[in-house]
């Protein structure tokens, strides 16, 4: 019995070492009690935990996709902000309406909106905010971002352990960035409960196009009771091979 415990411990240690060699930072830190529960999506990440203290990139093309992406980000933000603290929402053409954040578990007064004039200022503000370890998370709405800029943002989060969400609406090119993940969220028709009229819960097709040291995938998720639930009774739509990119 003792031997097995030892073996398990050693295996765990080895796994951790391998992850460290591969360049991922364990979530444990001064603020390790934050966690983002993603349901079945967690399997895609190394160590089955959603990586914090990194940048996540979200891509959207249409207005409804942008709204879904905002919703998905807000849901993650809600889980991060549950223990209090502030987060920044930076954009140059913000449309987010604070009262709606409540649906995703975010207390709207915990979010500070920064409306800047230009993309350059978004980047500057984002970098400053990501360096500030008193914040929990930073959401930035950007269109273009080059590799060097994303590296700067990555360096900022590594130092401060803030989580960054970069939402890129209609980007011109999709090149590799120094972000840990790339997501694409699109809405799908909701499934109201049997015999009930009206709308169902918010339902999304979540595509994880890129993830460092993990396995990309696609899921159909429903947001209900302040959590992500897999949409039952439907087959997941497989994403095309060429859209999938391995980091």
């Amino acid at each position: 019995m003792e031997l097995t415990c030892e073996k398990i411990d050693r295996l765990r240690q080895l796994r951790k070492d391998v992850m460290a060699l591969e360049g991922s930072i364990p979530n444990k830190g001064t603020r390790g009690d934050f966690s983002v529960k993603l349901g079945p999506m967690e399997a895609a990440f190394p160590g089955r935990t959603f990586p914090l203290s990194v940048n996540h990139e979200f891509i959207s093309t249409t207005a409804s996709e942008a709204a879904s992406t905002q919703g998905f980000v807000a849901a993650m933000l809600g889980m991060l902000l549950r223990k209090g603290g502030y987060s920044l929402w930076i954009g140059n053409s913000r449309k987010a309406f604070p009262p709606a954040l409540g649906l995703f578990g975010v207390t709207p007064q915990q979010v500070i909106f920064v409306d800047v004039k230009s993309e350059r200022d978004v980047l500057w503000t984002m970098e400053q905010a990501l360096k500030c370890n008193a914040l929990v998370a930073v959401v930035g709405e950007l269109r273009e971002l080059d590799f060097a800029q994303s590296q700067r943002l990555q360096l900022a989060v590594e130092h401060s352990r803030v989580t960054g969400f970069i939402h890129r609406h209609q980007p011109r090119s999709l090149h590799a960035l120094a972000c840990n993940t790339r997501w694409k969220i699109s809405p799908i028709a909701s499934q109201p409960e049997e015999g009930m009229p009206g709308l169902g819960f918010p339902t999304w097709n979540v595509e994880l196009l890129k993830v460092r040291n993990g396995r990309p995938g696609a899921w159909q998720m429903e947001w209900k009771e302040q959590g992500f639930w897999p949409l039952s009774g439907r087959k997941p739509i497989p994403i095309k091979k060429e859209e999938r990119q391995y980091a």
Binding site: D33, G84, Y86, T125, Q128, A129, C132, A134, V136
Partner: peptide, 17 residues
């Protein structure tokens, strides 16, 4: 223990921004 971050630090960041 700073669970939620120091508001003074956040205020300083916002001043800078």
């Amino acid at each position: 223990w700073h669970r939620s971050g120091d508001p003074a630090v956040v205020a300083e960041l916002l001043d800078r921004v």
